[in-house]
Design a protein around this nucleic acid. Structure first.
Lengths: 203, 203
DNA sequence: GTGGTGATATATCGGTTCGATATATCAAAC
DNA sequence: GTTTGATATATCGAACCGATATATCACCAC
């Protein structure tokens, strides 16, 4: 039904791959990248970071706060307007973490439900075109199967379902069809040659 | 991000309100009602049933299997082709369970995310039109807010997001807009008088 | 200056859920 | 007769959510 199965590891590693970050910023970047429906909770993010640290996929760099102004001397020359100054725990990805990231990204199983697929898509640039197409096709097949299940389901239960529930299922089917159409666009763009530029367009 | 917070109680009580069922059938009916994306796991359904039993919202009726044919006499007259014959645990809703169901259904807070809203919608027929409109408006406001967050988000981060992620966010926004349009339809239908039939339509 | 508010930052707890797995019974196919 | 597949209940560990606690710091009003 929902989502659960070590899902944070992939995006966390993916973000740390670009630059080291601390937990709070990680969460912000996650929402920025995936949209406002993705608000990971602290109760899942921090344990996930600890798991990654334990697996030696990330290194912790406890940052000692540079104490902008000391109690005695109010204006010190060095770094007065630094952005930081607070206790932070910055995480940096390790070579082992990079391996884990790629392994998780390429693994084509489990990439099927909406959330896992979204997470992989966000790091598609690290995959080869063939690997991307594989994931896209799998996602498409999954959605097509769900659509068939919707139809079978309605064929069997339509009479027993009230109008609100029926409207919900119809909307849900339409959304699934829209998802498939979107995947199809992605597939087409993936198959389109990017380097060859037709000389017809003289705009 | 995802869904979690005693969500099964409402639909389980709602189904048992119509007729008593055992766990396995409950799961099937749940999928039939809500569609193929709703496949509750045993690990959440059975504990939920136990919670409900503990709260005296449901009663358990252990059904002794009618042993179609005894070991000695192969063909007994009574009930040869009964559909059952297996150990089952049938759950029946109690008056207290009915109260809980209505209380959970009417409570307008927390009705805001997609899953909770879907679950409430599936039992809208037990609500007054005003209560329905309240939930619909709340859901609409929530989606509108998310849409605004999408736009702010993109305004700030568009340059830093790659094309795959951008495509995903655009698709996600379109889906949210489609959700809002659907809610608007439901609101219109809810406000439309159902009894008054205009005499113009002479089809 | 000092007091309040809100953003930044990390952490933990309890309860819920998932996914996998185990174990049986029974119907029907083979 | 035996294998397969649907029915049926149950449990386990890992992961996740929501709420909550605790600080630090920037900023503004007064």
């Amino acid at each position: 039904m929902k989502k659960q199965a070590g899902m944070l590891e992939l995006p966390v590693l993916g973000l740390l791959k670009e630059r080291s970050m601390h937990g709070y910023e990680l969460r912000k970047q996650l929402s920025a990248m995936l949209g406002p429906f993705w608000q990971v909770s602290w109760g899942s993010l921090y344990p996930a970071l600890r798991r990654l640290a334990k697996a030696e996929a990330v290194m912790v760099e406890p940052v000692v706060k540079p104490r902008r102004a000391n109690r005695e001397s109010k204006k010190q020359g060095t770094g007065t307007t630094l952005t930081a100054g607070r206790r932070k725990t910055v995480y940096r990805i390790t070579p082992k973490g990079e391996e884990m990231f790629l392994a998780m990204l390429e693994e084509s199983a489990h990439a099927v439900d909406a959330d896992h697929f979204t997470l992989k898509l966000a790091f598609f640039r690290y995959l080869q075109p063939e690997a991307r197409l594989l994931l896209l096709e799998r996602r498409r097949a999954y959605l097509t199967e769900k659509l068939a299940q919707f139809r079978n389901n309605l064929r069997e239960y339509r009479e027993r379902i009230d109008s609100y529930t029926l409207s919900m299922q119809n909307h849900s089917m339409a959304a699934t069809e829209s998802d498939i159409a979107w995947i199809d666009e992605l597939i087409i763009q993936e198959r389109a040659p990017k380097d060859v530029r037709p000389e017809i367009s003289n705009a």
